[in-house]
Design a protein around this nucleic acid. Sequence first.
DNA 1: CCAAAAGTGTTAGGGATACACCCATGG
DNA 2: CCATGGGTGTATCCCTAACACTTTTGG
Lengths: 255, 255
Amino acid sequence: MTENAKNKQNLKELVETKDFVEHLSIDCVIFGFHKDKLKVLLLKYHDLDLWCVPGGFIFNDENLNDAAARTLYERTHLSNVYLEQFYTFGDVRRTENNVHQKLLENKNIAVEENHWIHQRYISVGYFALVDYTLTYTFPDSFNEVCRWFDISELPELAFDHKEMIEKGLLHLRKNIDYQVMGSNLLPDKFTMKELQHLYEAILGEPLRRNNFQRKILSLNILERLEKHFTGSANKAPYLYRFLDNSEIKNLDFDK
Amino acid sequence: MTENAKNKQNLKELVETKDFVEHLSIDCVIFGFHKDKLKVLLLKYHDLDLWCVPGGFIFNDENLNDAAARTLYERTHLSNVYLEQFYTFGDVRRTENNVHQKLLENKNIAVEENHWIHQRYISVGYFALVDYTLTYTFPDSFNEVCRWFDISELPELAFDHKEMIEKGLLHLRKNIDYQVMGSNLLPDKFTMKELQHLYEAILGEPLRRNNFQRKILSLNILERLEKHFTGSANKAPYLYRFLDNSEIKNLDFDK
DNA sequence: CCAAAAGTGTTAGGGATACACCCATGG
DNA sequence: CCATGGGTGTATCCCTAACACTTTTGG
């Protein structure tokens, strides 16, 4: 079976499945961090010059949150990832530019006119925080291109996915939690400078080096490890690691 | 037509309507404030000893947020109300205790077995902030009892509505905004003490009288009006009013 | 020894907290 | 004139911002 034929088969199975909750979908804004830049992971539709946030549908007998995790896994092979619901998008016209329809036409897959894929649907938006260095493997069952984009250099996006990314980022900024964000977006070991650059990328503003260090250390959520020698002619920075919740010592309880 | 027959008619029309988005609903946690207590507005199902948060369905050609406002109006005759989405509830088992089914049985309305009302559905949760003193008029088209409940004395609730109320309250606490909450939950004019009691009810903890006053006044979002004489033998408190956004003078820009 | 970057110290200011005091009101 | 509750003043603490200084590293 050729690649194209396989894709067609997968797509056909998808729209003919009766087990999905109709008129409802899930979309997942995946944030990563690399070289001082905040990134989102996007997929490109086959044969179309449009990108989108990874999404999927909900089985009739599946919890919404489970469907989000499954969708994320199927589209990116990521599991055990920080995942949080942030907003449900329900404007009537949000799916007007119906990419799915074009896709089906391209592949000559016939779908009845009143099939729900042609109608409006409402999408529950999730965001995920993933370690950029771990996300090198992606499936190609839909033969979409999968790529990280800098948050400030997004390509043309399908539906209302641009708004989704913006709203997801705002949510991230507003509900900023040092431990959750740092421990999910950075590799296991990191320098203070890397951690600082992460927060600067998310907040979109510079922070003072020494004050940032003091503040984050006072939270007692980091463990200082060995020094990291880069070979450059300056003092070597320490590496740090986020403590597990069980390791965290709150000074208030230390007597 | 008797009351009961009318109710039956309404219910019948509801389930036979083809224009709703299937498997999806809206629920609205309505917060009010009265006599130093935070309240929620609940409806009682006819013939059942179960209460619920006002809810409704979404028309196929209707924006999600518009549907929430319409639902709120239909159930409570409230309009121009502060309304905000906070979470979408999608566990498979959340509607297992199917109140709708019992209701239909009670009224002897036959619905086909595979009608969506019998299946799982996902509900988008909104919360509303309303002035308790304005909410004296309610429709009775479903002949439900409509009543305010103290947040700490909730009756038995249908589905996962207890969880909804809790989650809505948490959202309110976390994203507390003095202006939005105060100006929607209090009448137009109020004393500083009333405002303080409102925040104490929401936060669930006592605040210091004088510090609270200083803090809220420093925000420059209040206008001091005439004194309010209660007849008691003590200094009369001022009345205050929230400024419109256009009236607010930010000290940073005053030169 | 020097430049570059990391780590630590030190001071000033703003906001929150806790306490105290004065003022208006009606009996 | 007194009890009561409302309004304002003030000292303290703590967190943060801003700046300065010391330490480490490889050339």
